[in-house]
Design a protein around this nucleic acid. Structure first.
Lengths: 341, 341
DNA sequence: GAGAGATTTTGTAACGATTTAAAAAGCCAT
DNA sequence: ATGGCTTTTTAAATCGTTACAAAATCTCTC
């Protein structure tokens, strides 16, 4: 009954391995391995016996050994960029990501993107040292060196935001065009004639999308649009506030693609006696319920970052499963209406 | 000159291994391995030759092989809890952590703490499956099952916050007592006679610290202290606001250990016509510059979460290096003055 | 120039999984 | 039984690294 292969008896402290299972069931190690892999070449009865033993002994395959043998790491790397324009972004994204990865056997490692450094550096590091099977990153550019590199090397990835490259690749993106369009329409409905929107730095693809959305609405409704130069959603709040304090010809409609920018601008406008609802209106893209506490009256449109995380995880998993075949489609998730009254 | 061991010529695509270096230098694989490990038993001249070859060929050791052989994963796991009381907490903590870990060869993996589930579960998972060499977690309790378990198993860790267990263990904690004391003194200086502080749930150690700090100041200055029952810094903002709206005998001094709680309470008090500076004063513990935009006048004391992350990383690294010997001391980092006027 | 002792290098065996090719077993008709 | 199938199991090699014990080389001293 008992296996005849040498067993480390007494010391029940060692984790069970395939050898332990082999000894327990009487099958060879190879048989056990394939049985656990549900290989149809192994008799159903054998598979059941092995599965039972694995369960009973609490067998868990050794990741290091699997990784060494197969070359697959079962790891997904998230490149974390230091941008802070969205409060709680990291937390929400991670919640979504870990949710999507739960139960798949994939682990999530985090690599930082150093502030001033080349955005390709962490990606290069992960790929060169074979640290993960797939990557996730955000802040995608129109012509993104990371996307180019990964496509070239055939490394699976999913990015938050799109490129304008012709090659199809997996991505997850918020419908910023739709957001901007609806924000502008809303402002027009409130009587605005001249709009102002603070955009992300021009190299990011979603800058163009926001721009396009506003312009479409502006054309439809005959509005003017100002886009502040030398200012972006990445500008430090003090800069934004100073800008608002000195702003001449104050527009009567503002679109803020981020809570922080809105707060900073408001901090600059309020001391001038300019009141929202009377002198101007605003629509803000939010990803938290923060503004509901500060300024319950402001029009908000919601971007669900946790959902983005989930989608990024799912998309990357699909890409990993595709294995040479055509990868998954890009996914665009829509704005959620939070408090547009 | 060239090595005589079979070399995969032509295909320069494969990553160099110890074998590659052995072939290149003419030494045995074992020698190369120990040379790279700076083993003093290997001649200095040999070490130099090997180091040069490794550099030239771009050799990077294979983590899977190292891990399989040594049993060490070179991974640190962060258990991410879903609490959101501190805006940007996750982002700051990760920035600090990855900074501390950079260049050490340790990677950071993230495991989620599912909202309602047992806090021991993810720790158990990591330890049982040997997924990391050390753990980091936050929200430490007075009697923390995770700390007990890890101490018992001898697994290195560093936690954010202290326990009240008698066994010494590594931790990193903010000086909440000092914060609360100084906040209360500040309020007394502003003329407050009756204080109110919203605490974390009682099981967390820092609830006691905050409590102690306030009480010491209250005794010194002869103040009264109210601690709202059925309310904590984890209460949903709407609950806090509702509480503030219905509050009878409004105290003249508030201490808020979190930005969100402050905003929620303010949202409840303001509609009642209660004005800060006239009817009451407040001191808030902040971890971002958010309040500077919303309410530049409010007294803030700063907790540097990024620093906490750095310290957690450093402390855990020391614990890992201690290897059986006495682990590192706990670290308490002080409040930073941000905008106490 | 032989032997002792220290220094330096090396061959081999793991670590725990997967995979290839080959062996063993089962089945059936002749 | 025997040969010819198919189904099932197995032995052995491999991934890249480290550790143990033994071999090789060098350095002195007499």
């Amino acid at each position: 009954m008992a296996g005849d292969i040498r067993e480390k008896e007494g010391t029940a402290r060692t984790r069970p391995t395939l050898r332990t299972l082999a000894a327990d069931t009487g099958f060879a190690v190879a048989t056990v391995s394939r049985a656990l892999a549900k290989d149809p070449k192994i008799a159903e009865s054998t598979r059941q016996i092995v599965a039972e033993a694995a369960e009973r002994l609490g067998y868990v395959p050794d990741r290091a050994a699997q990784r060494l043998r197969t070359g697959r790491t079962k790891v997904i790397s998230l490149i974390l960029d230091p941008h802070q324009e969205i409060l709680g972004f990291t937390n929400e994204l991670l919640a979504g990501l870990t949710g999507a990865l739960a139960g798949t056997g994939y682990h999530l490692t985090v690599f930082p993107q150093v502030a001033g450094a080349d955005s390709l550096a962490p990606v290069l590091h992960v790929v060169r040292n074979n640290l993960a099977d797939g990557l996730i990153f955000s802040r995608t550019r129109e012509d993104d060196s990371r996307v180019r590199f990964l496509l070239d090397r055939g490394v699976p990835f999913a990015c938050h935001g799109r490129t304008t490259l012709s090659t199809r690749h997996p991505f997850v993106d918020f419908d910023n065009r739709d957001f901007a369009y609806n924000a502008a329409i809303r402002l027009a409905d409130l009587g605005a004639r001249s709009l102002c929107i603070i955009l992300p730095p021009a190299e990011y693809t979603f800058a163009g999308h926001l721009h396009a959305g506003v312009h479409r609405a502006a054309e439809e409704r005959g509005l003017s649009v100002t886009i502040p130069d030398r200012l972006s959603i990445d500008s430090p709040p003090e800069t934004v506030r100073a800008w608002a304090e000195g702003l001449a010809d104050v527009p009567d409609g503002f679109i803020f693609p981020g809570e922080l920018t809105f707060l900073a601008a408001t901090a600059g406008l309020k001391p001038r006696g300019l009141l929202r609802g009377r002198d101007y209106n605003a629509v803000v893209k939010v990803s938290s319920s923060l503004l509901g506490l500060i300024d319950p009256e402001v029009d908000c449109i919601y971007e669900d970052i946790q959902e983005a995380g989930r989608l990024l995880g799912d998309t990357l998993l699909k890409a990993l499963a595709a294995e040479g075949g055509p990868g998954p489609e890009g996914v665009i998730y829509p704005p959620g209406v939070l408090t547009v009254k």
